[in-house]
Structures are given as C-alpha cells and as structure tokens.
Computed example of a mutant assay.
Amino acid sequence: MAHTIANKEKLILRIKKIKGQLNSIEKSLEDEKDCFKILQQISASRGAIQSLMSEVLDGHIKEHLGNHVSEEQREIEIENLATLLKSYLK
C-alpha cells in the first residue's frame, strides 16, 4: 500500500474532481439539460475514473509484482489482479 500512501493527497484530489463531475451530471439531469451535454459529462467522468484506475494500478503492479516480491506472493498477486481486471472490464 505504500504507493497509495505516497500519492494519497494527489489521489484524493482526483477523487474530489470526479465527485464534482458526478454532481454536475446529477444537476444537469435534474435541470433537464441537453442530452448531448450530459453525455459529454458522463464521458469525461468515465475518463477521469479510468485515469485514476490506471494510476493506482500502475503503482500496484510496481509495488506488488516487482523483483523484490517472492514467487509465491507474486502468483497470489497475479491471480488477484486477474480477478480484479475481469471485474473491471465487464
């Protein structure tokens, strides 16, 4: 978890921005804004979430699958990661 702790403030800031984007989508729906604008907001939010996932995933791979990890632990981490990615990509 050292990789998320080291980037904690940066990651939290990104999450706050994503929350703002989601709140904006909710307000746009409540205010019955143009559907194309809402779709753009949804697309931007999805991109922000994917970017967050990518950043945390990159740190996870480096931290938990690096040369300093035992072969047994690496196998466990690979299985966990494969399960996570299957779920994420559904």
Rank of each mutant, 00 (worst) to 15 (best):
S70T: 15
E75M: 14
Q73L: 13
E63P: 03
S45V: 00
R74T: 10
S51G: 15
A48T: 01
R46E: 15
V56F: 08
E71H: 09
I38E: 00
S45N: 02
V56K: 02
G66M: 01
R46P: 04
S43C: 13
L39I: 09
Q41W: 00
I42T: 03
I49L: 14
R74V: 02
R46C: 10
I61M: 07
M53Q: 11
H64L: 06
D58P: 03
I76T: 13
A48D: 02
H64E: 09
L57W: 07
L52E: 04
I49P: 00
A44E: 01
E75F: 08
C35L: 08
F36K: 06
D58F: 09
E55W: 09
L65E: 05
Q40C: 09
E63I: 00
Q73N: 12
L65Q: 02
R74N: 08
S54M: 13
Q50T: 13
E72G: 09
E75T: 07
R74Q: 07
S54Q: 15
S43A: 13
S43F: 11
E63W: 04
A48H: 02
E72L: 08
G59H: 01
Q40H: 07
E72F: 12
L52A: 05
H64W: 07
H68T: 07
S54I: 08
N67V: 08
V56W: 03
E55Y: 14
L52P: 01
K37N: 08
H60T: 08
Q41S: 06
K62N: 10
E55F: 14
R46M: 10
I61D: 01
I38P: 01
V69Y: 02
I61N: 06
G59P: 01
A44L: 13
L57H: 10
D58Q: 15
L52D: 08
L39M: 06
S43T: 10
H68S: 13
E71N: 11
G66H: 06
L57A: 13
E75H: 14
H60D: 04
L52M: 12
N67W: 05
I61Y: 08
I49G: 07
